[in-house]
Computed example of a mutant assay.
Amino acid sequence: MTEHASTLYAKLLGETAPITWQELQPFFARGALLWVEGHLDLVEVALAVAEDDQAKVAGWLGAGQLAKVEETRAQDLLARDPSLWAVVVAPWVLVQERAESPSLH
Rank of each mutant, 00 (worst) to 15 (best):
L94Y: 10
E51H: 01
E37F: 03
A17W: 01
L104P: 04
Q75A: 13
A32S: 12
W60A: 10
Q65V: 01
T16N: 09
Y9F: 15
E3D: 08
A50W: 01
L66E: 01
F27Q: 11
E3K: 06
S83N: 08
R98V: 08
D53T: 05
Q65W: 13
L94D: 06
L66P: 04
V36I: 13
Q25W: 03
V88R: 15
W92K: 09
E70N: 14
T2F: 03
A86I: 02
L94A: 12
A48H: 11
L33E: 03
G14R: 04
M1Q: 07
L42C: 10
T20M: 09
G38Q: 15
E97F: 02
R73L: 15
T72G: 08
E37C: 12
Q22Y: 02
W21R: 07
A17M: 06
W92Y: 11
A32G: 02
A32K: 12
K68S: 10
V93D: 01
T2G: 07
A46T: 10
K11Y: 01
R80E: 07
S103M: 01
V45S: 07
E44Y: 04
A74G: 07
M1K: 10
T20L: 12
T72D: 14
Q54R: 14
G31K: 07
A17T: 12
F27A: 14
T7W: 02
E70M: 11
A86D: 06
L34C: 10
D76Y: 11
R73W: 05
R73Q: 13
L34N: 08
T2Q: 05
V49I: 12
H4I: 00
W92Q: 01
S83D: 15
V57Q: 05
S103P: 00
D41Q: 09
K11D: 06
V43E: 03
L78M: 06
V57K: 05
A32P: 00
